[in-house]
């Protein structure tokens, strides 16, 4: 690819969309309160930052996401290793995983609201629940796709069970584990916003729903744009570098540029 600032290059595809949006808003087809232009959203962004509301809400959402993903990974990866490696573990946990995966995150909300009420516990449960399944399922897949010869090579070089686990199984399954975390993060982010809308008292999802109640369409749009932007940042600053440092370096997946 040609040179140029990477941020600028990724911004380029959005230019026509923003121009179209601005043109429709300008034309006056829709009332401005319902269909504000890009400049209104930018003004609202500046205003909410100035008031300190936006940084607080963003911080709350991000902390919830980090905690949820952290707990989901810390429980999901070992569980996936157990299910992938042990036939007993597989027989016991697999039916449970299939069943509870199907129940889905948001479907838990009614009972969670009864048990825990509107608040952090409910939101944390939903996000951990959402992150857990892609991490577990992909870890199992990763463990099972490790070539038998890797294990045999390690054994014939004197590795015992524990060494094989962390020298062969974990790095061998890592490409899938990263895929699982990536999916988990994506789904978890959506589940978080949804649960903030329903049960939250702060956060980006809450801000959007609250703005709807107050008829602040600019803030609703601002929330939507922030969700997309934040994902872009998480993807570009955390996930892509992580993949480049590990699985692309090892040649497990091809680089896409």
């Amino acid at each position: 690819m040609a040179g140029g600032h990477p941020g600028l290059k990724s911004f380029l595809p959005f230019v026509p969309i923003i121009l179209l949006w601005a043109a429709i808003a300008r034309s006056g087809i829709f009332p401005r309160v319902f269909f504000p232009g890009p400049w209104d959203v930018v003004a609202s962004f500046a205003n909410l930052i100035y008031k300190g509301i936006l940084p607080d809400y963003l911080g709350d959402s991000i902390v919830r996401l980090v905690v949820g993903v952290g707990v989901g990974a810390v429980t999901g990866i070992p569980l996936g290793l157990l299910v992938g490696l042990s036939p007993m573990g597989y027989r016991f946990f697999w039916p449970l995983i299939v069943f509870f995966q199907a129940v889905g995150d948001i479907a838990w909300l009614p009972i969670l609201l009864i048990w825990f009420g509107f608040g952090l516990t409910t939101m944390t449960f939903v996000i951990v629940y959402t992150v857990l399944f892609p991490v577990v399922l992909n870890t199992v897949l990763g463990v099972r796709s490790i070539p038998l010869e890797f294990i045999r090579a390690a054994q014939s070089l004197g590795a015992g069970r524990v060494r094989i686990l962390h020298e062969v199984i974990v790095p061998g399954a890592l490409p899938n584990i990263i895929t699982g975390l990536r999916n988990g993060l994506g789904w978890g982010w959506r589940a978080l916003i949804a649960s903030e809308m329903i049960v939250g008292t702060s956060g980006v999802g809450f801000m959007m729903f609250d703005a709807r109640r107050a008829g602040q369409v600019t803030e609703v749009l601002l929330g939507m744009i922030l969700l997309g932007l934040l994902w872009y940042v998480v993807d570009g600053w955390i996930l892509v570098p992580l993949e480049q440092a590990t699985i692309e370096r090892w040649g497990v997946v091809a680089r896409l540029d």
Binding site: E149, A153, Q155, G172, L174
Partner: peptide
Amino acid sequence: GPDRGVVFQNFALFPWKTVLDNVAFGLKM
């Protein structure tokens, strides 16, 4: 066991380890 070294048809090198770390694997064990 480590008393019998094996060279595999499909190499079976650990893709996440460098050449040096692959060669040093048995010594690490």
